[in-house]
Design a protein around this nucleic acid. Structure first.
Lengths: 197, 197
DNA sequence: GTCTATAAGAGGATAGAC
DNA sequence: GTCTATCCTCTTATAGAC
């Protein structure tokens, strides 16, 4: 948060989130950073390059966080692992809700000018994330903790839907769920949806 | 869909939905309608006026539809009424998913220029909708179909969250739920969330 | 690295003719 | 009702000095 580049990235992130890509202009970003618009072009060759540099960083940070959940490395039951993955994901998104909101904005409503690249990058990053989740779900199925009358893909979709919707709801309602509320939701989800879909 | 005004409204709706308010310009709307930009100003005094005319219409139409659900006028049990309200609301949004998506876009990410008015209008319209829902929930509580250890407001929030999230999920995943899937979801919701919160 | 100056274009909106 | 012509402002991006 010290270098000019850091300031540009931080300011651009906030404006891209609040105003959107089209309504954010280089002059506004730069005036807040206290440089002239032309100076931005020393760091990034275009507005698009600046945007995607920020976009990729958000995904990469979130994945890094998911890969470093200590409980996933331990020798715990796979259903417990999935619970920890869920809880850590939600808590990460509560801490950094604006990052999720940023991604939500551009996945739901990609600006025409950058839509093709966004879709491409979205596929890449969700695939990375899915691999992580699928390993655990597969372990659950192998250990008969999840029935195999449903496919891995279906379970994956249920899990992703569950996580996404609760984060989306926190954004829409501006309510942050507590640890015990999360546990309650998880139990309801596991029993009502995963076991008795 | 015959008059010039209809064409302007329909085209503007599509562009406001897909490109967003800031990225949609009068010239683009008018070139598709096959008139010159200046002609738009005969119908609307500004871009904002055009936008809010469309915005209000979407809400008003949805409320009209909810108020005309035949089962709500009949002398059926209030929990059955709530089920019909849910099913009709979802089915209406499946038919006109882009209208829900339009509202979602501007409620989640209101353009700065029109944010204040959007928030004001959003409050007005959701209040209208809430009154309709609350009447039925109150009947459920009066008839002991819902326990009164939770407040009317809490039940209302659970109901709204349930409906909103499933419509949002349909938009995000591009999957439309069938009638039997809706029934299944409703039973799970009623038993797991409303009765055993 | 950061600046000034400027090119080259797109945007909302209005005046006034027909 | 619809047009042409135009105003004025804002935008991304580049050239070239320091």
């Amino acid at each position: 948060m010290n270098t000019t580049n850091d300031k540009i990235r931080y300011t651009a992130f906030k404006l891209f989130l609040e105003r959107g890509y089209e309504a954010t202009n280089i002059r506004d970003i730069c005036s807040r950073v206290d440089i002239k618009a032309a100076s931005m072009y020393f760091y990034y060759k275009s507005k698009q390059e600046l945007f995607f540099s920020i976009y990729d960083d958000i995904w990469s940070e979130e994945l890094e966080c998911m890969r470093n959940i200590p409980e996933l490395a331990e020798k715990t039951a796979p259903d417990t692992k999935l619970y920890h993955l869920f809880k850590n994901t939600i808590e990460y998104n509560i801490r950094d809700m604006i990052k999720f909101k940023f991604l939500l904005r551009y996945h739901l409503f990609p600006p025409e000018e950058i839509a093709v690249v966004i879709v491409e990058k979205y596929k890449y990053w969700t695939n990375q994330e899915n691999e992580l989740i699928q390993v655990i779900i597969k372990q659950c199925m192998d250990n008969k903790l999840l029935y195999d009358n449903r496919s891995l893909k279906e379970y994956l979709r249920e899990y992703r839907k569950f996580v996404n919707l609760h984060v989306t709801d926190m954004i829409l309602s501006n309510i942050r769920l507590s640890g015990s509320e999360l546990d309650h939701l998880w139990n309801k989800f596991w029993n009502c949806t995963m076991l008795n879909g």
